[in-house]
C-alpha cells in the first residue's frame, strides 16, 4: 500500500514535467513561422516601402481574335508601395485614321508586383503605332 502510493506520487511528478513531443514540434513550427513572418515584414519595413509607386507597362503578346486583335500586357510596380485604381491607357495611332483608345483599371498593384491585362483593337497593332502607359494611381 505504501509502495503503491509512492509509485503514484512519482507518476504525478512525471506527469507535471512531461510535455509530449508533438507539443514541442507544433510550437517549434509556430516559432519558426513567427520569426519568419516578423523577419520578412520587418525587412520590408526598412527596405523601400516609402517610395511612391512607379508603374511600367509592357506589351507581352498580340493575338488576332474575332473582330480584331487582343493586346496582352503586364503592368509592373517597381517600388515597395502599393498603388490602387491604376488606370492603363492604350493608344493605337492609325495611318491618317483616328486613333483607337483602350482603357483598363487595376484595383491594386502591390509593391514589387505585376498585374496582367488585355485590350482589344480593331486594327492590327504594330510596334511603332501602339503606346501603353499608366495614367495615374491613388494611395490605397
Amino acid at each position: 500500500m505504501v509502495q503503491q502510493r509512492t509509485a503514484d506520487r512519482d507518476g504525478t511528478q512525471q506527469k507535471a514535467n512531461h510535455t509530449p513531443w508533438l507539443e514541442w514540434v507544433a510550437s517549434g513550427i509556430g516559432l519558426l513561422l513567427t520569426l519568419g513572418i516578423f523577419g520578412s515584414i520587418g525587412w520590408q519595413a526598412f527596405d523601400d516601402a516609402g517610395a511612391p509607386p512607379a508603374i511600367a507597362v509592357d506589351v507581352t503578346r498580340v493575338v488576332p481574335v474575332e473582330g480584331g486583335y487582343r493586346v496582352e500586357f503586364r503592368a509592373r510596380n517597381s517600388t515597395g508601395s502599393t498603388a490602387s485604381q491604376v488606370e492603363i491607357e492604350g493608344k493605337l495611332a492609325g495611318d491618317g485614321a483616328e486613333a483607337e483608345i483602350g482603357h483598363v483599371v487595376f484595383d491594386y498593384i502591390p509593391g514589387h508586383s505585376e498585374r496582367k491585362g488585355g485590350m482589344f483593337f480593331t486594327r492590327e497593332p504594330r510596334q511603332e503605332s501602339l503606346a501603353l502607359r499608366a495614367l495615374g494611381f491613388a494611395d490605397p
Partner: peptide, 21 residues
C-alpha cells in the same frame, strides 16, 4: 492547472503556427 510561462508561450506559438498554416 499548473501555470507556467513556458506552457502558455508554447501554446501561443502553436496557435499562431496553426493560424498561419
Amino acid at each position: 492547472k499548473t501555470f507556467s510561462w513556458r506552457e502558455d508561450v508554447m501554446d501561443a506559438l502553436a496557435a499562431f503556427g496553426v493560424g498561419v498554416i
